[in-house]
């Protein structure tokens, strides 16, 4: 089994739990990045996807953050392995069903994962247990900066990082906090809360992101917009709403 090494080892999600804030299970930040002069994965032909994978996979795997981690092409993974990685939020459903020339690199502690040829050429993600946006940002921007030394990103000074979907353009950042909110659900307050935070440009989704249901009263709150604000401003806005959720629950 290709991903066996991550079972036995200590992982961010199980070892680094924080008792300070039991409501927030984990904090996650992902950055969408694309290479310059190459079509985005959804439109690229197989040889172009292959080039991207062959350029990115070694570049990502050689990062110091990925030392003793796992590097795999999606076709090498069994269905079970893919399911495990999806459950651990290390790859997306979209990547797991990707037909060809897609890959993933995961750090040893499973806090950093970089998907290649998902919706964008690179999806860099950092997971931190508990409520730790600042640490997650510091970590993800570190990986991003190190990669930028190796790869040429598609970037416009006017509208920022260019992404396959215009909803991600700009910072390319989606920051989210996963929260357990049973009291709000039982007291039928959740709908009201969701409506209120939507007004602030914040989305509330189920356990596995877009289109998933809120099994076990677990929700993700994340930023809806990515252009026109700095990463810090977005995180601050999200943190404020997160605080309100915590107080409300």
């Amino acid at each position: 089994m290709l991903i066996k090494s991550i079972f036995g080892g200590k992982s961010e999600m199980t070892e680094a739990s924080s008792k300070k804030c039991p409501v927030v299970l984990m904090t996650r930040i992902r950055l969408a990045r694309n290479l310059s002069d190459t079509p985005f994965p959804g439109w690229a032909k197989t040889p172009q996807r292959k080039d991207v994978l062959e350029t990115c996979l070694p570049a990502v795997a050689s990062l110091s953050q990925m030392k003793r981690g796992i590097t795999a092409e999606v076709v090498e993974l069994s269905d079970l392995e893919k399911q495990i990685l999806v459950e651990r939020h290390l790859i997306s459903r979209e990547l797991s069903s990707s037909p060809e020339k897609a890959g993933v690199v995961i750090s040893k502690d499973q806090s950093v994962s970089v998907m290649i040829n998902e919706e964008d050429h690179l999806r860099i993600q950092v997971i931190k247990s508990g409520y730790r946006f600042k640490q997650a940002w510091n970590s993800v921007t570190g990986v991003d900066t190190a990669l930028e030394d190796e790869l040429d990103y598609a970037f416009s000074s006017q509208i920022g990082f260019l992404t396959a979907c215009p909803t991600n353009v700009g910072t390319g950042m989606r920051a989210s906090a996963m929260m357990h909110l049973p009291a709000l659900v039982i007291s039928n307050q959740m709908e009201k809360v969701v409506r209120a935070v939507n007004q602030l440009g914040i989305a509330v989704r189920g356990l596995f992101g877009e289109g998933s249901d809120a099994s076990g009263s677990i929700f993700q709150i994340s930023n809806q917009t990515t252009l026109g604000e700095s990463e810090q401003e977005i995180i601050k806005r999200l943190s404020c709403s997160g605080e309100d959720f915590r107080k409300g629950s």
Binding site: Y153, G228, S230
Partner: peptide, 27 residues
């Protein structure tokens, strides 16, 4: 087509976040 759409879906129309040094230099 994108310009009015981006303005409608985002907080602003100009990037205010991180700038990749290498991409800017190349440009």
């Amino acid at each position: 087509l994108l310009s009015p759409a981006l303005a409608g879906m985002h907080k602003g129309e100009r990037h205010k976040g991180k700038v990749p040094a290498r991409a800017v230099e190349r440009k």
